[in-house]
């Protein structure tokens, strides 16, 4: 049994000043979590690499040079070149930008769908809830990967934008379920009853009372969803159904290793993007876990 000592201790030491708001307390707890800070540090580095990609990369990642295919690492090409003679290092750097952007936007899309459906189901309950929940059940029945691939096969042509919409459209059930649970528990709280009794509109109750009170679970799940999105993007690009070439993404780079020759002879071409995915996901998971502990210190996980 863990007793939350930190809050009490802080409460007494900070008595004369203004006491901290719940989100400030959560922030403090988060900053005391070493793993979460490591994750945050890694993420900041990746984001900086993504932002300053044009300055870090040595070449244009999309320009191919057929006179220099599969070259070994050199001072000109730190990680060698790929099948079209594109510079692997520059692709890795620009891949950071694409993978993070795709992961982030897909996460935002999913989160918006999840928030709308989850709050409707949780707020209204009853029939609305039943319909939305059956829809999520149904979506979860068809294996996610197969559904995405099927939709890609039907649409035939996939651009980055369409790709993001497809994965958001297929991943919303999980986050909807989680948020609906949070909203359902809020629904019975007295302050919601209070808001209702003074005549607040449904929209106002959802936006002003539901969402701020569910901010913890929302942020935690949004963070973890972003990791999922990055993995999904890279997995689909890896099997050749993700973001079309020549756009550099980590998944597209690893795709090259499906040829035995690249796999065995050019580990420097596919291990760095793989390690980049691993580190990003690890960092995001650390941050997510840290946030979860920070927002819900009593939760045992």
């Amino acid at each position: 049994m863990k007793i939350d000592v930190t809050v009490n201790v802080e409460g007494t030491t900070l008595q004369p000043e203004r006491s901290l708001s719940p989100s400030q307390l959560a922030m403090r707890r988060f900053l005391r979590n070493k793993l979460a800070l490591v994750g945050l540090f890694l993420m900041v580095i990746f984001i900086l690499i993504g932002i300053f990609a044009p300055f870090i990369a040595t070449q244009d990642p999309t320009v191919s040079n057929l006179s220099q295919v599969y070259s070994k690492p050199s001072s000109e090409h730190y990680l060698g070149t790929d099948a079209s003679g594109r510079d692997n290092f520059s692709r890795l750097v620009f891949g950071t930008r694409i993978s993070l952007t795709v992961g982030f936007t897909a996460m935002i899309f999913t989160l918006v769908i999840g928030l709308v459906l989850g709050s409707l189901a949780g707020y209204y309950g009853g029939k609305v809830d039943a319909v939305i929940m059956r829809a999520t059940d149904l979506m979860l029945t068809i294996p996610f990967l197969l559904l995405v691939l099927t939709i890609i096969a039907i649409l035939q042509k996939v651009s980055i934008g369409i790709f993001v919409v497809i994965i958001a459209f297929t991943t919303w059930p999980n986050i909807t379920r989680i948020l609906r649970g949070t909203f359902l528990s809020l629904r019975e709280k007295e302050f919601i009853l209070g808001a209702r009794s003074i005549g607040c509109s449904d929209f106002r109750i959802i936006t002003k009372h539901f969402l701020p009170n569910a901010i913890g679970p929302i942020i935690v799940n949004a963070t973890l969803t972003m990791a999922t999105m990055i993995v999904i993007e890279s997995a689909l690009s890896f099997i050749g159904f993700g973001i079309p070439e020549p756009t550099p993404t980590w998944g597209n780079m690893i795709d090259e290793a499906r040829q035995i020759r690249v796999l065995t002879k050019f580990p420097e071409a596919w291990i760095p993007p793989g390690a980049a995915i691993l580190l990003t996901v690890l960092a995001i998971n650390f941050i997510g876990d840290g946030l979860r502990d920070a927002f819900d210190p009593k939760g045992k996980r």
Partner: peptide, 8 residues
């Protein structure tokens, strides 16, 4: 194990 994508 959770952070490593299966294909990698």
């Amino acid at each position: 194990g959770l952070a490593t994508p299966s294909f990698f």
